[in-house]
Each structure stands twice: as structure tokens, then as C-alpha cells.
Write a protein that binds this DNA or RNA. Structure first.
Lengths: 215, 215
DNA sequence: GCATCCTGACTGACTGTTCAGTCTATGGGC
DNA sequence: GCCCATAGACTGAACAGTCAGTCAGGATGC
């Protein structure tokens, strides 16, 4: 893959590999059950090497949490850049958070990871601070979409920030249910509930069509 | 406190003490950082005694999770029995979940515990099954409140189940923010957003009044 | 004297972290 | 173009601390 790798680049690649591996592991087994040795094995290195890069297990894992949260938002940002109709934008956002992932290997943002992120943020100020920032960016993104929709005359005039708060919370709550396999709130149901909320709040007409997983 | 304690009763009390202690500890330190020795110390017993009662650490902790979740719903149930006006009922429910706990020692249901419950449920089928059941009871409770409100003519006619799903999800999402100290979505804000959603969805008039923590 | 509740002392396994040292590549002096 | 020094990437082996769970036996009540 990488044709040539200067020493400095190798190091950066290794860090990323480790972060990605750690994130995946956390999503699978949970924060507490992820061992340094597991991460090392997954990237084909020795445990001391992981320590060499991150100093301590905790730093590795919390960094992995941030890493994967950031990449989620970054991906969402890019999606928005390539879509302009507000309904389509919202649909994609909702599908993204509520519909179970297709089995795509490069998506590390499995839901299990969010639970651990929250649990960790609840107790560790550093993680908490990061999470708050990213979540504000997330709501800002939603608010921007709404404002652009208003400017384009696609929807009613509403308080974009207020809507963003409610909508973000609703999506979080719904995806907890789907992630935890609630039989009555499955992915499709959650998708419908969220979109219905958006359409009545923002005043656009919308009708349900079965939806495949986003991304 | 207990005047007399027959042998069999002592055992049951001990179990409850241990579950409560474990729940509190999980809320404070997190699931992964709660040791058998901590629980033992908090109830004034030896670690082997804890094992004697629960067999294994995992059984203790997962049971503690269920225990505290159940007691939350039970308390909510009791509250409903003593209140009949729908608006008051909803206000109390929302305040309960979104407003930070007063410092009351007997409330074990701190929010930190839910994060761990979710994380655990995500990976352990047994916990997952329990959580799904309790959550359905939670939504059923909301739906019942709505139906009784409709019967009493206090609110519009709506699909109670559909509302319950959205409302429960919204409250979950909002309380994540407040539990994680989001500066823009603090307790009062969350309270307002949730009640506003309820009032417009159900068609009753409602105006914000500053609210002290419930319970 | 049996069952239940309970404990101190142990142990066995796991695992994060350290250490001492190897191997490779780079770069500067000549 | 060669050589050596230095730094960075990397590892095997060992260390040290932590804890869940065991065991053998003590108390207490019935």
C-alpha cells in the first residue's frame, strides 16, 4: 500500500493504527475489557511498543475514544458538503445514527463505543470537556442545516438552536434503543419517529419510505 | 434500627445492602473500577462474604445494575399514584430524569450508572433483555399517563405509544447532556425543551417556571 | 450437631509497565 | 562513496501490583 515510508511517517501511521485498533476493540469488548496486549496483537506489535507510543493504557484508550468520535463528525461534515436538499440531509443524518451499520470494515463508530465514551466522560473531566465540544459542533451542524433550509425557503422559520438541541437529543435517545435491540424501537421505527419530528417541527411534508443503512 | 432480625431476614438485608452499595459504587467509579473489596468494605463485611452471596463479581454487579434500574421505575410508579393532573405528572417525570439530583443519600440512581448499564447491556444478552423489558415498562407508564390525560379531556387525542417512544427517547438524550455537564443544555434547559415538546405534541398550554430538582 | 453466616490467610492468574539491549536508517565528516 | 555515531523504533524477559476466588475453620442459632 504505502510505497515508501520515511521513518517519521511510519511512526504516525503506527499511532493511527493503534488508535483505530483500540477504538474497534473498545466497541467490541468495552473499555474495561480492552487490554494493551489486544491492541498490540491487532497491529502486529509488542505490548511495550504501545506503551512506547502512548505512555499509559488510559491515555491510549481515551485518545482512541476521541479519535473515533472526531472521525464520526468529520465524516458527517463531508456528507453534508455533497448534499444540499435539507430533507435528504436530515434523512442521511438520521439514518446514520439510527440504522444499524452495514458491515463495513472501515466504520469504527459502532454504537457500543458511545456508551463507553459517555461512561468515561462522566468521570474524567478531560474526556468530558472534549465530548462537550464535539457535541456542540454536532448541534451546530444541525442548526446550520436548518438555517440553510430556511434560507432556501424549504422549511418554516424556527429557532434553529432550539431545534438542534431537541433533535440531537431525540436521535441520541432513539439510537440507544436501536443499539440495544429494543424490539419495538428498531432502526426503521426510530428513523420514522425522528423524521416525523423533524417534518412537523420544521414544516415540510415527508412520507416514510423504507431505508437502507446509511454510509 | 431493626429491632430484631431473624436469621433468614439478616441474609436478605445483607443482599440488599450489598446491591445498594454496589450500585452506588458503580455510579461513582464505574463498572470496571468497582472491586469486590470495595463493596465488602462499604457494608462492613469481608470480601469472601460478598462472594458467598453472589458467587461471582459479575453476577453481583449486573444484579446491582438491575436492582437500581428497577428501584428507579418503582419510585416513578409510586409518584404517579399520588399525582393525577397530567401536566404535573409529566413535569415530575421530566424533572426526575433531567434535573441533577439533590444531594440525597438514598438516591442511588445517579446518572453515571445508566451509562454503565447501557454499555453492559450492549454486550451481555442477559442485561440487555432485562433493560429492554424495563424500558418497555417505562414507555408503557408514559403511554398510560397520556391515555389517562386524554380520558380526562386534559389533552388532545394522539397516538399514546408513538408519543411515548419519542418522549422517552428525548428525555434520555437530554439527560445525557445534563449528566455530562453540557453548558448549553443544563438541567433547566432540558426541562424546558422536554416540556415544550410534550405541550405542543399533546396540545396543552404550558409556561416555564423555574423548577427545583425532583424527589 | 447441623446449617447458615462469616472471616483471615492465601493463591493463582492476569496485565500494565520497566529495563536493557537489538536492529535499522539517517546524516555528517572525510 | 565509505564509516561511524546517534536517534528512533522495537522487543523479550522480568517485575510488581492487583484482585477474584478458594479453603479451612470459627461463631451463632436452632
Amino acid at each position: 500500500m504505502a510505497e515508501k515510508a520515511s521513518a517519521a511517517v511510519v511512526a504516525d501511521e503506527r499511532r493511527d493504527q493503534m488508535l483505530a485498533a483500540a477504538a474497534a476493540l473498545i466497541a467490541e469488548r468495552g473499555f474495561g475489557d480492552t487490554r494493551i496486549a489486544d491492541v498490540a496483537e491487532r497491529v502486529g506489535a509488542s505490548p511495550p511498543l504501545v506503551v512506547y507510543y502512548f505512555g499509559t493504557k488510559d491515555k491510549l484508550l481515551t485518545e482512541a475514544l476521541r479519535y473515533s468520535e472526531q472521525s464520526f463528525y468529520k465524516a458527517a461534515d463531508e456528507m453534508l458538503a455533497s448534499t444540499s436538499a435539507i430533507v435528504k440531509r436530515l434523512e442521511t443524518l438520521v439514518a446514520w445514527t439510527c440504522l444499524p451499520d452495514d458491515e463495513e470494515e472501515e466504520t469504527p463508530g459502532t454504537w457500543g463505543l458511545w456508551f463507553d465514551l459517555w461512561a468515561q466522560a462522566f468521570r474524567h473531566p478531560e474526556v468530558k470537556k472534549d465530548r462537550v465540544e464535539l457535541d456542540q459542533r454536532w448541534r451546530a451542524m444541525i442548526a446550520r442545516v436548518v438555517r440553510e433550509g430556511m434560507d432556501a425557503g424549504e422549511i418554516d422559520t424556527v429557532d434553529a438552536e432550539e431545534f438542534a438541541i431537541a433533535f440531537a437529543a431525540l436521535m441520541d435517545g432513539l439510537s440507544i434503543q436501536t443499539a440495544l435491540d429494543d424490539p419495538v424501537v428498531d432502526g426503521q421505527r426510530a428513523y420514522r419517529v425522528a423524521m416525523r419530528f423533524a417534518s412537523t417541527s420544521l414544516g415540510f411534508t415527508w412520507k416514510y419510505r423504507r431505508r437502507r443503512a446509511g454510509r
